[in-house]
Design a protein around this nucleic acid. Structure first.
Lengths: 229, 229
DNA sequence: GAAAATCTGTTCAATTTGAGACATTGGCAA
DNA sequence: TTGCCAATGTCTCAAATTGAACAGATTTTC
């Protein structure tokens, strides 16, 4: 597989509305989907007829170009929707591939059901719109990051975001080890480049490899890289 | 001003629902805003308390980085919303600057009014969600474009999109002349680079300068640049 | 535990891009 | 017409990035 070029989108904080209880109550999320680590939920090109709500775990969205390069477009936490773009029009096709970054539990909501409930439940509709807007902002930030910053800064930014991503407990630590290859996919550069910067950051004490299982400590001083002129 | 780095987002086709009549009927869009060419609707950092609906003309969204670089994040046609992100939470701040690319007529809708009507009118809510999803897809495409393609291909893509942008009448023509400077802002590179590629495209017959008033004909053969391995 | 499959550290030449400098050109206004 | 000014066409040089290759380290699998 060719080297990839992509960027990442880490998504918004959990909603202030108990979605799971709601989905449960309305029977909307009756269909539970379990996903193993690295298992594919749906692939680019598949027919799109359902939306998913992440109950547990995180999901990676990727896109493959014609030339076989792969880009990671977003990482989604629990509390986010996946495959939401099919809500707009029927007969849509998946534009991305969704893969479990970890083991996941998802609620599957059929498109038509989703539309119906969005009409009937204000709170749920609000939540969905809020999610869409947040996602919008995030993708736009990633785009701007690509436009303004060098790959070194992009890497630093992603590492900082990742450090917060798994913040259920220990701070300043990227929990699931992400390979340099994937990091390269996320910021849109090559692995050798990522490796180069990672070592640089390490020498400068901004990050530290800890624990044999690929733990990575991200020190907040890494912010210097992003903020520096 | 420093050289800029940005990318563009050309937005979706007009809705299948008469928004203007609707806004008119409900009194929602009672407040009309006229915008001259190059006039600023709102600036990055302003308080955000209203959404706008473009009735006529087109709007440019830009972001300025700390170092003074400028990026064009989107071009919006009639039939699109502007400043929609404030719908989510009160007390928001504009993250972009919206400027009239041409003379514009906009309908101003106060945030609270917008929220209220979204709850009460399904058709309008559907339209809005559809708009958000389309915008999402577009920004993501731009992000992916940045990740996968070289600046030459990005320029080709933008030119092709622009050729469709003003497709009210003559096909294959970028109507309002856009300076190489702005093009550079849109694809995230420098003007001299844009100039270089423009001349190359011209020599290869992919585009043609026509009419003294900066008309630019974009030939569909320019697709070769985008599709070529 | 050994083989197989992944990651990582490193190097390097070939390209691509960034950032400016400068000369021209075309349109507009006094 | 003349002069101003923004938009263009060119060029150059340094820095950033790509792409590929390889060996060593680490993990996974059987």
């Amino acid at each position: 597989m060719k080297v990839a070029r992509p960027a990442i989108v880490l998504l918004p904080p959990p909603p202030a509305f108990d979605v799971e209880a709601f989905l449960d109550r309305t029977g909307l999320g009756r269909t539970l989907v379990e996903l193993k680590k690295n298992q594919v939920l749906f692939s680019q090109g598949d027919a799109a007829d359902a939306v998913f709500y992440i109950q547990k775990g995180s999901i990676k969205l990727t896109i493959v170009s014609q030339r076989g390069k792969e880009a990671t477009v977003a990482l989604l936490n629990a509390g986010n929707f996946v495959g939401e773009s099919c809500v707009a029009a029927a007969e849509h096709i998946r534009m991305v591939t969704a893969t479990g970054l970890t083991r996941c539990t998802l609620m599957r909501i059929e498109r038509l059901e989703m539309v119906r409930v969005l009409h009937e439940e204000h709170a749920f509709a609000d939540l969905f719109v809020t999610f869409l807007l947040a996602r919008n902002v995030r993708i736009q930030e990633d785009l701007v990051d690509q436009l303004f910053n060098s790959s070194e800064k992009r890497l630093a930014r992603i590492l900082l975001l990742l450090a917060q991503f798994g913040k259920e407990g220990k701070p300043e630590t990227v929990v699931p080890k992400i390979s340099q290859e994937v990091l390269a996919e996320m910021i849109g550069t090559t692995r050798s480049r990522v490796n180069f910067f990672m070592n640089r950051f390490r020498k400068l004490g901004f990050i530290k490899y800890s624990g044999g299982l690929g733990g990575l400590e991200v020190h907040s001083s890494l912010l210097n890289v992003v903020l520096h002129d």
